[in-house]
Design a protein around this nucleic acid. Structure first.
Length: 392
DNA sequence: TCTGGGGTCCTAGGACCC
DNA sequence: TCTGGGGTCCTAGGACCC
């Protein structure tokens, strides 16, 4: 989806179209209705406090404001930009709507978060082909068929949500992810393996999903800037720098090779809640306040577990200190837990294992190693199946 | 008073088992 | 004085993604 959160906000406040708009900041103010149908909006310059831009409209991006940028920095770049608080219920609603619209056409979908999916079009394209075989003036060009299908999906998404999306149709997820960035907003790119040298290799290596800031910097140090540089780079030297596994993946990725299937179902591995404080808190001086925050996080986590029907075999805490260093500690209760009181107890024990000298800016609680069962499951046993032991 | 919140996956070391 | 070769599970940290 194109600038998803910001675009949803523009549906609600059409008068903001064409203006730089930033979504984010926990203390951002709700727009105030004026009575004539318009609203009084807060602007970025007036924001004070912690927080980052969750997303921004293309007009704000033109001014240099991107996702994850601190709002104070964003305000320096775009002081007149409108600032809106995030409304995740609203975004989830539109997320479900666009996914439903796609699923009606192509049901083989992998969820990649609130605003992104992979679609396996193989069967849909083939069905279309056999349908067409009967027709007389049917379009026989496979590429034209694929394009028509992609346009049908874009139209369905727009019909259901009023929002635009960008689609990349390619032989695999890696290439589709790259191509979905082309022509945004409202892009459509169809690409085959043969197009990789011309259209993929000129791109910066950083654009590959899985090459982040660290890997990109190390590649840069090797003189590797583009995906084409990476494709041409000596494999063994890549192994020296990154280890066998990552090196092989880098090499395959640079050649547009990716065999990962579209995964239509997956179980969560962990559920967590965390919060950054308005001011840094000291483990001893602010002990009571921290304890209250931890309790609240545990209550939220317990309600998440209950709603989703999971128990946690491990409970962990996450601390971010004033120097931004992160420490995590995990404990495993004798039996899986779900109740807020239990989570609070074990989170407290995990916390005791952590170093507590510096001030904290963030505290988090995590339910780890999730299970549907409330009773401990010994390794190698399943339910109440009879156990068989054989010795020779 | 730069720098959110929710995730996944990988690596590495230690405990423990046969 | 030396002490193998598997395996699994658990924990901590880090890179990366949306």
């Amino acid at each position: 989806m194109d600038a998803f959160y910001a675009s949803v906000e523009l549906l609600r406040y059409p008068e903001l179209r064409g203006r730089p708009v930033v979504v984010g900041g926990r203390r951002a103010h709700q727009p105030v209705p004026r009575g004539d149908g318009t609203h009084e909006f807060s602007i970025l310059r007036d924001y004070a406090g912690r927080g980052v831009a969750t997303t921004s409209t293309y007009e704000a991006r033109a001014l240099g404001v991107y996702s994850a940028m601190g709002l104070m920095k964003a305000a320096a770049l775009a002081p007149e930009a409108v600032l809106l608080p995030a409304d995740f219920d609203q975004y989830r609603h539109y997320s479900r709507a666009f996914k439903r619209a796609v699923a009606a056409i192509a049901p083989h979908i992998e969820d990649r978060g609130i605003d992104e999916i992979y679609i396996d079009l193989t069967d849909v394209v083939e069905e279309g082909a056999s349908d067409n075989a009967a027709g007389d003036d049917a379009d026989e060009d496979p590429r034209a068929r694929v394009e028509a299908l992609a346009r049908r999906i874009k139209a369905a998404v727009h019909e259901a949500t009023g929002l635009t999306c960008s689609i990349g149709v390619t032989p695999n997820k890696l290439l589709s992810k790259l191509c979905s960035e082309f022509g945004k907003p409202d892009g459509l790119t169809i690409l085959d393996h043969a197009d990789v040298p011309a259209r993929i290799w000129p791109l910066p290596a950083r654009r590959v999903n899985g090459i982040g800031p660290k890997a990109a910097a190390r590649l840069e140090a090797l003189g590797v800037r583009t995906i084409g540089d990476l494709a041409a780079y000596d494999r063994l030297r890549l192994v020296d720098e990154f280890g066998a596994n990552y090196a092989e993946w880098l090499h395959d990725a640079a050649h547009g090779r990716d065999e990962r299937p579209v995964v239509t179902h997956s179980e969560p591995k962990s559920i967590s809640r965390e919060t950054t404080f308005e001011r840094n808190l000291h483990p001893r001086q602010d002990r009571d306040e921290l304890g209250a925050i931890l309790t609240r996080l545990c209550e939220q986590l317990a309600s998440d577990l209950e709603r989703k029907s999971y128990y946690a075999k491990s409970v962990g805490v996450k601390l971010r200190f004033d120097d931004f260093k992160i420490v995590t500690r995990v404990v495993s209760p004798p039996a899986p837990v779900r109740e807020a009181r239990d989570i609070r107890l074990w989170a407290g024990r995990a916390l005791k294992k952590a170093p507590l000298e510096r001030r904290l800016r963030l505290l988090g609680v995590r339910a780890d190693r999730l299970t549907r069962e409330s009773t401990p499951q010994a390794p190698g046993t399943r339910g109440d199946e009879a156990q068989l032991r054989l010795e020779i």
